[in-house]
């Protein structure tokens, strides 16, 4: 059965249609890649699925239940959690407290010791134990991103949405992040990841979706995507333009 089904999802911002009639299906246990040039509507799609914004039209069905338009806290408790393109952690809290927040509030009726134990386990899993008493705001970008992922994992999700986890990381850090993503999948967590780092997405994902101007252009395996003419034109073309421009 599909874990997530999205039908004809649409979001307008004033005159602009950021997401336009997008259909999407995600199998339990898979890692789905989401790519597209800047401003394609990828983050907006995440915002709709995770409840940051309510969609203007369309359906979002998670685990057989319609979640379109619900507040993010309810969606999180149903087992769907996301990270942000610009890191959103609790900077004054320690790394441990950040993760504890996830385990305390991410699911109902957890006792304090249970939550603490779970937070420690997640810190281990994400390789952050040695930083657990450091204020999260003082960490480097990679580690802040890791804290955000750890906090999301601590909510015990079935599905995790990762928004540009690897942006701004150096090649070694990208490799580590890729390894982390694979291990998260091995825990049985389904993942959708937005990524501009092509190497990462081509390696990890079995299936990739390309968005352009808010529309789903094509969907396929990494090989199909990387050889597809339209994709090369719209996506890689604009990338080059951007590079030439800057």
């Amino acid at each position: 059965m599909q874990l997530l089904q999205v039908e004809k999802l649409t979001k307008h911002f004033g005159g602009l249609t950021a997401v336009s009639g997008v259909d999407l299906e995600v199998e339990r246990g898979e890692i789905l890649g989401l790519i597209g040039p800047n401003g394609a509507g990828k983050t907006t799609l995440f915002n709709l699925i995770s409840g940051t914004f309510a969609p203007n039209a369309g359906k979002i069905i998670f685990n057989g239940e319609s979640i379109g338009g619900l507040k993010p806290n309810y969606i999180c408790r149903k087992g769907l959690v996301r990270t942000f393109q610009t890191v959103k952690i609790f900077p004054e809290m320690t790394v441990f407290q950040n993760v504890l927040m996830g385990s305390l509030f991410g699911s109902e009726g957890k006792s304090w010791p249970e939550a603490t134990g779970q937070a420690r386990e997640i810190l281990d899993f994400t390789g952050l134990s040695h930083l657990s008493d450091v204020p999260a705001g003082s960490l480097t970008l990679v580690n802040q991103k890791r804290v955000e992922v750890a906090r999301a994992l601590a909510t015990r999700p079935q599905m995790l949405l990762l928004d540009e986890l690897m942006a701004g990381l150096n090649p070694a850090e990208v490799a580590e992040a890729m390894e982390l993503v694979t291990r998260i999948r091995e825990r049985g967590i389904t993942i959708i990841m937005i990524e501009h780092v092509m190497k990462a997405i081509m390696n990890i994902c079995k299936r990739i979706i390309v968005l352009h101007h808010g529309k789903k252009i094509i969907e396929g395996t990494p090989e199909e995507i990387s050889t597809n003419k339209t994709v090369i034109e719209i996506y890689l073309g604009e990338e080059e333009q951007a590079h030439a421009g800057s």
Binding site: T52, P72, C76, V81, F84, I89, G106, A154
Partner: peptide, 9 residues
């Protein structure tokens, strides 16, 4: 924003 997305009402 983060608080809302980790299950806090």
């Amino acid at each position: 924003d983060a608080a809302a997305h980790i299950g806090i009402n």
